[in-house]
Design a protein around this nucleic acid. Structure first.
Lengths: 219, 219
DNA sequence: ATATTGAATATTGGATCCAATTTTAGTAAA
DNA sequence: TTTACTAAAATTGGATCCAATATTCAATAT
C-alpha cells in the first residue's frame, strides 16, 4: 500500500527561526540602528532559553547586521554614508555581471514572473511593500544566471543597505525613477540585449546611490 | 597612583578561538572536504563544553565553510569546479576595482611592505607558506583602498578557495607564473599606474582560474 | 544467507544553572 | 551639591544535564 508522503522534515531549529525573525526586523528597520538585543528579552519573546538566541545573534554578527561585545551585549549596527556608498559601488560591480550572464538564460516564464513584480511595484502604494517587490523583481531576473555565489553575495549586500534603500525610495522621487528604470531593464531582458541590461542595471544602482547620498547629506 | 595598564581585554571568547582554529584548519586543508565536525570531539580538544563549539560551527556555516544538518552534524563543505570557477570570476570583478582605488593611496611604507612579501614569496621553498605570503602580498596592496566592505568580501571569497588555490600553486607551474605576475603588479603600483595594476590583477586571477580548472579536469 | 526488526549507542539542540563582568543605585565624604 | 566608593542588579559566556533523532549492530524471520 502506498501512503501519501507528508513532509515533516521542515522542523526548523529555534535558532534559525529567531535568526530569520531578527534579520527581518533589522532589515525592515523595525529594530533601529543602535538598538540593543537583550538575550533574555528575546528568549522570552520566543519562549526559549537564551541558547538559541545567542546562536542567532552570533550568526547575525557574521553578516555584519549586529555588533556584539563581551558582557555588554549586541546592538544593531548601522552604516555611515561612506559605508552605504561603498556597498552600492560593490553592487554596481556585481549586478551588471550577473544580469549579463542571466539574460541569455531567461525563459518566458522567468520574464513573465519578473513583469508581474514590476507591475505590482508600479501599482503598489504601500511603501513597506516597495522594498520587497523591488528585491523580488531584480532577484527573479538575476536567478536565471545560476551564479549562486554571486547571488548570495548580492543578497547579503542588499540586506545591509535595505533600510537605507527603502528610506530613499520613500522620501524622494526615487519611486517614480525606479519604476521607469525597471521597465527599461525588463525591456532589455525581453529583447535579449544582455549588454544593455547590464548597462541599465549599473545606472540604476549608481543613480540610487547618488540619490541616497544626497538624501543622507541633508540629515 | 597610576598603574601600568595591562591589556587584559583581549580575552577572546572560547567560541572565537574555536572558530578561528577550525577556520584555519579548513582553509589550509587540514580538515578535508566532507570531514565530519563532531561537537564532542572538538570540545574535548579545546577543554570546553559543546556550547562554544556549536557557536563556532554555526558561524562557519554562515561563511559557507561547513554544512550542517540537524541531528546529523556538520561536515566541511567543498566546491565543485564550477563553483570554484565562479568564485574566481567574482574575485576578478572585485579585486581590480579595489587595487585601482588603492594605487593613488599607497604610501612608500605600504609599497615596501608589499615588496617584502613579494620577495619572501619568491624566495620561499615551503609550499605551505606560499598561500599565506600570496594573500599577504595582495592584502597589503588592497588595504590601501580603505574599502572595508570590499576587503571583507574578498577575504571571505579567498577563504573558500584557498585550499584549491594552494593546490594549484604547488602542483603546476603556478608558482613561477605567480611570481612573475606579482612583480609586474608591484611595479605598476610603484609607478602609480592604477589602470595597469587593475588590468594585471584581473589577468592574474583569471589566469589562476584557468590553471585551476585545467588541473581539476585532470582529476 | 539475506533481509527486517528492535534495542543500544552516538549525536545534536535546547534548558537550567553558575561564573565573570558591567552597569546602576545608593551612600558617605569633601 | 558634587564626587568617590561600594554593594546590588543586570547581563553575558560557558558547563552540565535532558530530550529528540539518527545510526549501529545484534537477534530474528524468511
Amino acid at each position: 500500500m502506498q501512503l501519501k508522503s507528508v513532509d515533516i522534515s521542515k522542523t526548523a531549529s529555534a535558532a534559525s527561526i529567531i535568526f530569520d525573525a531578527l534579520k527581518k526586523a533589522i532589515i525592515e528597520g523595525d529594530l533601529e540602528e543602535g538598538a540593543p538585543l537583550r538575550q533574555d528579552e528575546i528568549a522570552r519573546m520566543f519562549n526559549t532559553s537564551r541558547i538559541p538566541v545567542r546562536e542567532a545573534i552570533s550568526r547575525l554578527e557574521e553578516h555584519g547586521l549586529v555588533k556584539s561585545q563581551r558582557y555588554k551585549g549586541a546592538v544593531v549596527s548601522g552604516l555611515s554614508a561612506e559605508e552605504a556608498g561603498e556597498i552600492f559601488d560593490y553592487r554596481s560591480l556585481l549586478e551588471p555581471h550577473v544580469i549579463r550572464t542571466a539574460v541569455p538564460r531567461m525563459t518566458p516564464e522567468i520574464l513573465a514572473k519578473a513583469r508581474g513584480y514590476l507591475e505590482a511595484f508600479a501599482k503598489s502604494d504601500d511603501p513597506m511593500a516597495w522594498g520587497n517587490l523591488n528585491r523580488k523583481f531584480h532577484a527573479t531576473l538575476y536567478n536565471a544566471s545560476d551564479l549562486s555565489f554571486h547571488l548570495e553575495a548580492i543578497e547579503s549586500a542588499l540586506d545591509r543597505v535595505d533600510r537605507y534603500l527603502r528610506a530613499q525610495l520613500v522620501l524622494t522621487d526615487g519611486m517614480a525613477r525606479a519604476n521607469d528604470e525597471h521597465a527599461h531593464i525588463q525591456e532589455a531582458c525581453e529583447r535579449g540585449d544582455a549588454d544593455l541590461a547590464a548597462e541599465l542595471t549599473q545606472q540604476h544602482i549608481l543613480g540610487a546611490k547618488d540619490s541616497l547620498l544626497k538624501h543622507l547629506s541633508k540629515m
